[in-house]
Design a protein around this nucleic acid. Structure first.
Length: 498
RNA sequence: GCCCCCAUCGUCUAGAGGACUAGGACAGCGGCCUUUCAAGCCGUCAACAGGGAUUCGAAUUCCCUUGGGGGCACCA
């Protein structure tokens, strides 16, 4: 294969950027980047009725988020434009006319009602549904007569009645079908817009596409496309049909399975590098053990040959795990930048972020290895940013302790912590911060045996008092970041609760 | 209903006739570490859908069955 790689992602702007579609874009992009080829973004807006405002923008946003860039497209231009199919109508019309002249296509005047009736009959008689070719051999006069009645025809392809059509799929090998199982599909709709089949073939040829990489659901319409390539005298590209992403019930992943827009995953706090890595691993693998791969590693190692054939379930648990791994890999600055927008969405955290960024930067390292999503970070850090610690007072009572013992422990801690500060302040003017984790540990650890408690018991009482939770980042670090004032206040508040 | 396709642990997968006692990862379970929660480390459970055939030898090739999926629009 010496022709340069030119691949395309051709979404139709009929909705949100579905993860399945984005993954298709990714495979195309990976091949382009791996082989030094080009990725073309082409918008297939030929369905006027289903067109959704803002869909193109959302698709681009999703791609951008993942770092999937394209070389030609509606926004960046290119030598093969325009890149909206709605702006290429003339091309399709010409192709259709040519096919009619050649005798490979014909006008069909059947009404939607008739077609529906016909199909209903076929289903009833347990026949395979398909156009009955009523208009296939209409004479010029018969056409003119219907034309005169004001009927707007569609153009249908004159599918050969016999023979076979096959091709060699990069992933599936030889795919052959009997032409008799194919009906005379529509090329041009009555509104003048092309169907997917026509537009695709015309554009993929015009744009010199080398590989058509798309989902498995297209496999059965590929023979039709081949027939079109042949009739038009075009050299067909290589076809690569990849398996689909399935929902937990093994059906094609769809809205009813929950989040399916790539932007939903962004909003739920997944990192783009996680999504890219994870999506690549659905239906593709490098070897028997490599799983964590950066964008560059994916590009370097990608190959069509390693795409599998089996549909794969989208496994949220593994996604969560992988996101946790990527979160932990972030530097402090990267983590801060990544989390910022999510913190901003929270009233309390947002306020603090604006007024005291340094405090936020001190808090974040404490939760970085504990969070699996960026949204989780907000939850995990909540007690750092609010003074309203609403918790069940019963949580304060330590294991095997009663109210009195808990009270005693808190009071003792309060006193010692107070001493600690005084001590540090009066003793020389050391640069030691008065309330750092080490000093706190130095004071609190010995306190436990004095109270006849296990360290765990004392610490858990303090943890609840200071964070309002039984599970939190390490106590001393947490207290140090919270600062002396907040800690003393919260301990006092806890004493009052008892 | 018709056409096409697929089939390894619960899930994602490695495997292209002998290297398979079937490997890795997530999840689960157990343990270590430990002030909690995580993280980390160690260990453990767990699969070739079934049946034939070919072969000295089959997860790997062929056939059938079963199960699953996709397609069958003036949607893409």
């Amino acid at each position: 294969m010496t022709t340069p790689v030119r691949v395309r992602f051709a979404p139709s702007p009929t909705g949100y950027p579905h993860v399945g579609n984005i993954r298709t874009a990714m495979f195309n992009w990976l091949l382009a980047r791996h082989s030094g080829g080009k990725l073309i973004l082409r918008i297939e807006d030929t369905d006027v009725a289903r067109k959704v405002e803002g869909a193109v923008k959302a698709i681009m946003e999703g791609l951008n988020w993942l770092g999937i860039d394209w070389d030609e497209g509606p926004d960046v231009g290119g030598d093969y434009g325009p890149y909206y199919q709605s702006e290429r109508l003339e091309l399709y019309k010409k192709a259709a006319e040519r096919l009619i002249e050649q005798g490979d296509a014909y006008y069909c005047y059947c009404s939607p009602e008739r077609l529906e009736e016909m199909r209903a009959g076929q289903v009833k008689r347990k026949e395979p549904p398909g156009y009955d070719r009523l208009c296939r051999d209409l004479t010029r006069d018969e056409c003119a007569r219907r034309e005169a009645e004001g009927i707007k025809p569609v153009v249908r392809f004159k599918t050969p009645l016999e023979g076979q059509t096959g091709y060699n799929d990069v992933i599936w090998g030889n795919v052959v079908v009997n032409n008799s199982t194919l009906d005379d599909f529509v090329l041009l709709k009555s509104d003048g817009y092309p169907t997917y089949h026509l537009a695709n073939v015309v554009d993929d040829h015009a744009m010199e596409i080398s590989h058509v990489i798309r989902a498995e659901e297209w496999i059965s319409s590929t023979p039709r496309h081949l027939l079109l390539y042949r009739a038009l005298g075009f050299e067909p590209p290589r076809f690569v049909h990849h398996p689909m992403i399935l929902g937990p019930d093994r059906a094609k992943l769809s809205k009813r399975h929950g989040a399916v827009s790539i932007l939903d995953y962004r909003d739920m706090g997944y990192l783009p590098q996680t999504m890219l890595n994870f999506l690549a691993l659905i239906g593709w693998s490098l070897d028997d053990k490599t799983e964590m791969m950066s964008k560059q590693e994916l590009i370097d190692n990608f190959s069509l040959e390693r795409i599998g054939k089996t549909g794969a379930i989208f496994n949220r648990e593994k996604l969560d795990w992988m996101n946790g791994v990527y979160i932990r890999k972030l530097t402090a600055d990267e983590f801060f930048d990544a989390v910022q927008p999510y913190l901003m969405d929270d009233l309390d955290a947002g306020k603090v972020l604006i007024s005291d960024e340094e405090y936020v930067r001190a808090v974040l390292p404490l939760v970085q290895e504990r969070a699996r999503t960026l949204v989780e970070v907000v939850e995990l850090t909540r007690f750092f940013f609010t003074e309203d610690l609403s918790y069940d007072s019963a949580l304060l009572i330590g294991k095997n302790m009663d109210k009195a013992a808990t009270f005693e422990a808190l009071e003792a801690a309060q006193e010692d912590l107070g001493k600690l500060v005084v001590l540090q302040e009066s003793a020389t003017r050391e640069t030691l911060p008065a309330f750092d984790a080490d000093s706190l540990e130095g004071v609190l650890r010995p306190l436990a045996p004095e109270l006849d408690l296990k360290t765990g018991q004392l610490f858990s009482v303090l943890r609840v008092a200071v964070t309002g939770r039984t599970a939190a980042p390490p106590l001393f670090d947490t207290m140090a970041v919270l600062g002396r004032e907040r800690c003393m206040q919260r301990i006092a508040a806890a004493l009052k609760r008892l």
